[in-house]
Amino acid sequence: MNLTTRTALLLVGIVFTAYHAARTLFWTGPVMHPILVIITVCFGALATLIALFAEPRTPAVAIDAPLTAGGNGPKVLPMWAAVLALVAAALTPTAIAIGVGRDHVDAPYATGYIGGIGLLMTVVMIRRRVMCALLGVALLVIGSVIWLGPLGAFSFGLVGAIMWVSVAQIIMHSLDRASRDTVRLIELQRAAAAWQAAQSVRRRERRVRVQFALQVAGPLLTRMIGQGGALTSEERAEARVAEGTLRDELRAPNLLDTRVRVAIEQARRQGSTVTLLDEGGLDGLTEEELGRIRGEIADAIASAPSARIIVRSSRHPEIAVTVVGRSAAGDGLTPEDTVELWQEIARATTN
């Protein structure tokens, strides 16, 4: 048989409840009102069993509840069961004292209720009714001190009852703190795993970029080294195109596809300076939307007669990319370059 921790604790609670009930009912002296004693003991035992097995009406646990509550630990005791336990704690000392008689209130069988109520309040504390458990202990202390006196009450098990409830509270608090620490540790582990995954993706992307750079600039660099830097005009133009291509791949990979790369290369070979700047804002777009935007970028670059072309992504809620074409400065007409093209590419198409 698979004996779970909860089942074991319930069995321990039942055994101790039966022990304290039997201790009170095993009379070794005269009892003035045995029926009252039997009813009181049965009522206390019933309250303990209810505290052990009572289930809340709403099984769902609040989000901010400790992890040791609900399905992973003791559920919160229903309020009606907690009130029943308080009634037992308030009535039992007086009922037992009246039942056994004033002259026998300090007999061993007449003081067994102290351990029984202490057990009941321990169960209430474990079931997360802290204030009810503390109030029940206070009622037990008051009742036993009234009938037994301070010295008698504390010598007949009141100290042990208080200790049980206190230890139960310490244990539950420690379990809750350990659960919260476990949750934090899991969150940190997940964050570390996500960070490692992100770093792995970045390293993979860097390797791809490096491989692309070697494919684009490797042959040219080899020739440059072999010729000692003495390049022809055609080779210098080719080097400028390769350098610009590498810069585009590093700065704005989200803006590039085959059409954009071809349009940029043609514009550079015709003497234009093309600059791509990716300032974010394109991450949430679908592949279809990115394809449309890149197609418009390619068309804008191919049709721009400007000497300088700047393509810049945007975080604007409506504008995804802006393409600006500027004339060359110092052409004899104006001291500064002028804007010849200003095209804003929408983030989403309008129907």
Score class of each variant (00 low, 15 high):
residue 35 I to F: 14
residue 263 A to E: 09
residue 216 V to T: 14
residue 75 K to D: 03
residue 313 S to E: 00
residue 20 H to G: 02
residue 175 L to H: 10
residue 194 A to H: 14
residue 93 P to V: 06
residue 287 E to Q: 12
residue 197 A to Y: 02
residue 254 N to P: 00
residue 284 G to N: 12
residue 140 L to G: 09
residue 162 I to T: 12
residue 83 V to R: 01
residue 339 V to Q: 03
residue 154 F to V: 13
residue 45 A to I: 11
residue 26 F to Q: 05
residue 42 C to W: 05
residue 112 G to P: 08
residue 139 L to W: 02
residue 152 G to I: 04
residue 132 C to D: 11
residue 28 T to W: 09
residue 199 Q to I: 03
residue 202 R to T: 11
residue 330 G to L: 07
residue 68 T to F: 13
residue 325 G to K: 00
residue 168 A to M: 12
residue 40 T to E: 01
residue 280 G to F: 06
residue 46 L to P: 08
residue 51 A to P: 12
residue 260 V to D: 07
residue 222 T to R: 15
residue 257 D to W: 09
residue 9 L to K: 08
residue 321 V to K: 00
residue 224 M to F: 15
residue 27 W to D: 11
residue 223 R to A: 15
residue 123 V to H: 03
residue 281 G to M: 08
residue 345 I to P: 05
residue 59 P to V: 00
residue 246 L to E: 13
residue 266 Q to N: 13
residue 168 A to K: 09
residue 221 L to P: 11
residue 138 A to K: 03
residue 263 A to W: 05
residue 93 P to K: 02
residue 52 L to W: 08
residue 203 R to L: 09
residue 99 G to L: 07
residue 163 M to P: 01
residue 81 A to Y: 00
residue 157 G to I: 07
residue 43 F to Q: 10
residue 241 V to H: 06
residue 121 M to C: 04
residue 242 A to M: 08
residue 141 V to Y: 02
residue 351 N to V: 14
residue 207 R to L: 10
residue 346 A to E: 07
residue 202 R to D: 07
residue 326 R to V: 04
residue 51 A to W: 05
residue 209 R to V: 03
residue 213 A to R: 03
residue 56 P to Q: 12
residue 146 I to Y: 13
residue 332 G to S: 04
residue 87 V to G: 07
residue 22 A to L: 09
residue 132 C to P: 10
residue 265 E to S: 14
residue 220 L to E: 06
residue 332 G to N: 04
residue 329 A to I: 11
residue 229 G to T: 00
residue 24 T to R: 01
residue 147 W to E: 12
residue 119 L to K: 06
residue 172 M to I: 05
residue 309 I to L: 04
residue 132 C to A: 06
residue 276 L to P: 01
residue 261 R to T: 15
residue 119 L to D: 01
residue 327 S to K: 03
residue 109 Y to P: 05
residue 192 A to G: 14
residue 66 P to W: 00
residue 330 G to I: 03
residue 94 T to W: 07
residue 59 P to W: 00
residue 98 I to A: 15
residue 78 P to K: 04
residue 33 H to T: 15
residue 248 D to H: 04
residue 36 L to N: 06
residue 90 A to W: 01
residue 113 Y to K: 08
residue 280 G to N: 10
residue 294 R to M: 06
residue 106 D to Q: 06
residue 229 G to H: 13
residue 339 V to C: 02
residue 125 M to Q: 15
residue 6 R to N: 02
residue 155 S to D: 14
residue 212 F to G: 11
residue 73 G to I: 01
residue 310 I to Q: 04
residue 157 G to L: 08
residue 34 P to W: 13
residue 72 N to G: 07
residue 305 P to G: 09
residue 294 R to Q: 10
residue 296 E to P: 10
residue 317 P to Y: 02
residue 240 R to V: 14
residue 346 A to I: 05
residue 351 N to Y: 15
